[in-house]
């Protein structure tokens, strides 16, 4: 009989609650009833794999998706995707999306009075390599206003979507930039109780990946749920 090695549950303080009143959009969308604890079965410890999907090399360079170069500060965002035991997630899909340098998304519902950039779409994807490494070339996104409260501005951020090896390890998060003065005021960044967990969402400036005369490097490692030690009989 096969054994199901389940995925570890997060320390609650390190993940956001569903209802976070300071984030107004959560008020009518957060569930009001308790979640039902779901033991992981074969359905949750498996998940989609994208390792054999064809990857366009332009998909990981957001500055080369159009005829011209996008405006803004060119940056390199790289890091590793690991599980909680530090094991690399190999050939795992990462998707990113972001605003342009002026803080505007190429999206029909984005009403911010800032210019679109004809040379910037703002989305990309890649697979991690055999050591769990990934690398995107992009431009630094701008901050932008939003309607959450009076004079609300989102700190500059890049959205990350990760699949890992199983349905149970699916994660969508946001990467922030070091020294951003808007971080202390952002209800989305601050929704998580644990300060060190919040800090891990802030990328690190990185000389090692900075290319002279070309682009600043920022490092952002991502950790997905690890496996429990004790297998469950299935």
């Amino acid at each position: 009989m096969a054994k199901t090695v389940t995925y570890r549950r997060p320390n609650p303080d390190t993940q956001p609650p569903y209802l976070h009143p300071a984030y107004v959009s959560s008020l009518k969308r957060a569930p009001s009833k308790s979640l039902v604890y779901l033991p992981h079965t074969l359905s949750e410890v498996t998940g989609p794999t994208f390792a054999n999907e064809p990857m366009d090399v332009k998909a990981c360079d957001l500055t080369r998706q159009h005829s011209g170069e996008p405006l803004g500060e060119r940056i390199i965002v790289s890091g590793r995707v690991l599980d909680e035991e530090g094991r690399p997630l190999r050939h795992s899909l990462i998707e990113v999306w972001q605003a342009n340098a002026a803080g505007r998304y190429l999206h029909k519902r984005d009403q911010h009075d800032a210019p679109l950039d004809p040379n910037f779409t703002g989305c990309g994807h890649t697979l991690t390599d055999a050591e769990g490494r990934y690398r995107f070339v992009t431009i630094r996104p701008g901050a932008y206003p939003w309607g959450n409260h009076h004079n609300a501005w989102r700190p500059a951020h890049i959205h990350f979507s990760l699949f890992g090896a199983a349905f149970a390890s699916r994660l969508v998060t946001q990467m922030y930039f070091p020294g951003d003065p808007l971080l202390p005021f952002d209800p989305i960044f601050n929704c998580t109780a644990d300060e060190s967990a919040r800090k891990r969402l802030i990328s690190l400036f990185d000389w090692e990946t900075t290319i002279p005369s070309q682009a600043l490097g920022f490092k952002f490692d991502i950790v997905l749920a690890g496996r429990d030690a004790t297998p469950m009989e299935t």
Binding site: T14, E85, S161, L171, Q174, L201
Partner: peptide, 19 residues
């Protein structure tokens, strides 16, 4: 000491350009 899974953040309103 093992690591802890990265904190989740909302997909936001404009995820359709990425996802």
């Amino acid at each position: 000491m093992s690591r802890q899974a990265t904190t989740s953040q909302t997909v936001g309103p404009f995820f359709s350009i990425g996802m």
